[in-house]
Each structure stands twice: as C-alpha cells, then as structure tokens.
Design a protein around this nucleic acid. Structure first.
Lengths: 219, 219
DNA sequence: GTCTATATCGGGATAGAC
DNA sequence: GTCTATCCCGATATAGAC
C-alpha cells in the first residue's frame, strides 16, 4: 500500500477501511489489516483496543462522510433537479472510490444493529425535517403531493443499489470492471433524467398521489 | 423452532437459511445453526460435509427461487408496464417474507465471489437475451433507444434496495415495523407508476439517449 | 511506539459409542 | 442417524523486550 508520510494511526484506519470493505466485519482478520498497513497485529491493539473499537472508528467515519454531504445538498435552495444531479454526481464518485461505504453501512445494520445506534445519534441529521423540506419543494415545483419518502427512497435506491450489487451484476452479465464502471458513470446523467421525467408526469393534478388516501386498486 | 414433521435435512436447511440470513457466511456459527434446528453440530457435518457446502445449498436455493420467476415474467408477451407491475407485486411479497434472500445474495457475492460461479451457471438464464428482449420492447412501446441495462438496473434498484436497506431506513426515520411494511406495500403501485412515467417522457425522439453516443456535458 | 512470543479461546471438523 | 467428547487450527488479545 502506498503511504505518503501517513501517521501510523491513519495507516491503520486506511487499511482497516480496505479490509472491512473486502470482507465485512466477521470476515476481516486483524492480521490482514496489519499486513495491509505494513505493521504487526500488536500495534493494532495498541492504537485501538479491540477489533470492535477499530470497526466503530472506521464505520463512524464512513457514515458521517456519506451523510454529511447529503444533508448539505438537500437542504440547499437549488431546484430539486439540480440537487438530484449534484447528489448523484457526487455520490457515485465517492461511493465508487469507496464502494465499501454503502455496503459497510448496510452490513453493519444487519450484523450489528445495536452498535450502530450511537453512531446515528452523532450525525446530527433530522430526517423528518428533511422529508418536510422535500415535500414542500416537490409541491412547489411539481404541484404534487407524492409522499416524499418514496421519492427519497427512489433516489437512494437508484444511486446506491447499482454500486452495492456490482459483484452480482458483473457476474450475471459477465462484465469486466471497466465496462461496469462506464455504466456507473453514465448513471450520473441517466438517473437524474429518469427521476425528473417521472416527477414531471406527476404534474397533472388529477394523477396526484395523496398520502392519506386509501387506494385499493392494484392492477 | 416449530417443525411440523420435517425431516432432519429440511430442518437443517431451514435453520441454516435463518442463521445465514441473520449473520452472513462468516458471522454464522455451525453451533447456532444446530441449536436453531434442535440438533447438534456433528449431525450438520453428517448431512452436509462442511459449512461451505451447507452454504452452497442454501444460496443455490435462494438464488434460483429469486431468479426463476423474474425470467418468466420478463420473457412473457405482456406490455412492459404490466411486467413491471407483476415483478414488483410478486417480488415485494416474496422478498418481504424472505427478506434474507436479496441480502443473502448480495452478501454472498461480496464475501465469496469465486464460489458463486457454478450456481449462476445452473440457473439457465441468458442475460444478454433478456436485455435484447427488453430493448426491443422499449423501442416498440416507447420509441426509445435507452440502454435497457439502465432500465433493468432501475427496476431492480427500486424493488430490492428498500427491502435490503430496511434496517437502515427504519433506524434513521425511527419507523416501527408495521409502518415500514405499509410503505413497502405502497411501492407495489408507486414504483410501476414511477417507472412508467419516466419511460413515457422518453417518447419524445429528440430526447432519446443513444447507447453509442459519447456525451461530455455533465452539468 | 514498535516488535516477537505467547496466552487463551472459539469454532469447524472428526472419532467413535450407541 | 444421532449423540458426546475431542482434536486442531486460527484469531483476538496481551506480555514484555527493545
């Protein structure tokens, strides 16, 4: 691993990032992290008392890195379409270069839900406030009452899933690394367009979806 | 665990399913699987030689269960919108009741990409054929040349991600189980509408996206 | 701070009785 | 087929020299 004058602690964190990414919490080996950092196991325990704590440090970093930007982008005053564009462009870059992050978060939630609670509390995000902000903006720009949570889920899904599912999709379609990377790059423009198109169609007031309305028709 | 006259092998498979789902491959313990099945470790090795093989059996089941139906739905002759509707309705049910499946597959790919090859070969799916089928249908019904892989990725993303990310989203928004389940149910109608809206907007030929065209503008 | 050597434990796998 | 007891390796963690 290339380390341009990194302190030992940074080297460890960076190595742990890589290995936890590759193997998940249970699969990661302290030895492998030590090798990756170019030091020995004992030092890991000198800096971080245990594997658990090391994981927490890495996870916490990843999570705040990922969530912090989202907050800024979506609470800004730009048109929704621009926000989605910014979000996609920014995140597909960040996530692609650190593809361990979303995986890591999902994995962490599954394997260690309890441990994650504190980390969420540290990232001062108010999701309900975000939803209200989004709701207002959709109403204003698209004259629609779609449940903003659905839109939010759609944005996240379209952004994150193709990165998380990369090994699966590559295997199924037998795609080499570079080709899949091209596809992800294309999505920076494809997905915002896709979402904008979908939202535009909601502009017809008669087709609006109302949150509290109970609808039975499923065909 | 409730076992209504299940054979031992079935009990083991069922227990392994549960535990691999909860913990992933590395996190799962043979002891825990044995406990879950109400037997002892030795018997696990009697039926399935190793943890590896046990995993393979479970993974293979999950994968074919998930992919088999998708094949049928998308190779049928219904209008695209109906297919998406069927897919969503069917899959959100299957996946919700067995939410371990998509997680499991993604997780499996991440942790053990090599081991999966044979399993993919068993599921006689021709993905390129599926893409061509999809491309033709989009061209015919929407007069568009969008890359069908993007549409396919979008469908999968919107369907699977909200299920996989359930623990994360529930934690962030502090949603109880039933509420999130309601949201997933709503998506059976929301998502097809969302996708249909987006595709409709492609119908304008001037806005079409051509696969081979190189586009540089990123703002 | 960084290393080598070692304690300790847990988990996958097997032997062998029933 | 199913059990108990056990092997054995590998992984976390610590002791202690430098």
């Amino acid at each position: 691993m290339v380390n341009i004058q990194q302190g030992t602690e940074e080297k460890i964190l960076s190595a742990a990032k890589t290995v936890f990414h590759r193997k998940g919490y249970e699969g990661a080996r302290m030895q492998e992290i030590a090798d990756e950092a170019g030091i020995n196991k004992a030092l890991l325990h000198y800096y971080f008392r245990s594997k658990e704590r090391l994981f927490e440090a890495v996870f916490s970093d990843a999570f705040t890195q990922l969530m912090g930007q989202a907050k800024e982008i979506f609470f800004s005053e730009k048109p929704l379409n621009d926000k989605i564009q910014s979000f996609l462009t920014h995140y597909l870059d960040v996530i692609t270069e650190n593809s361990y992050i979303p995986w890591f978060i999902l994995n962490g939630m599954y394997e260690r839900p309890g441990q994650m609670k504190t980390i969420f509390e540290q990232s001062e995000i108010n999701p309900l406030q975000l939803m209200e902000h989004l709701r207002a903006q959709i109403r204003k720009e698209y004259h629609s009452d779609v449940n903003p949570l659905h839109v939010w889920l759609n944005i996240l899904s379209l952004c994150i899933f193709p990165v998380v599912a990369k090994p699966l999709i590559r295997e199924i379609f037998q795609l080499p690394e570079e080709v899949y990377q091209q596809i992800l790059d294309q999505r920076k423009t494809e997905v915002p367009r896709f979402i904008a198109n979908a939202l535009k169609a909601y502009e017809n007031p008669e087709e609006n979806i109302h949150n509290e309305s109970s609808r039975e028709e499923n065909s």
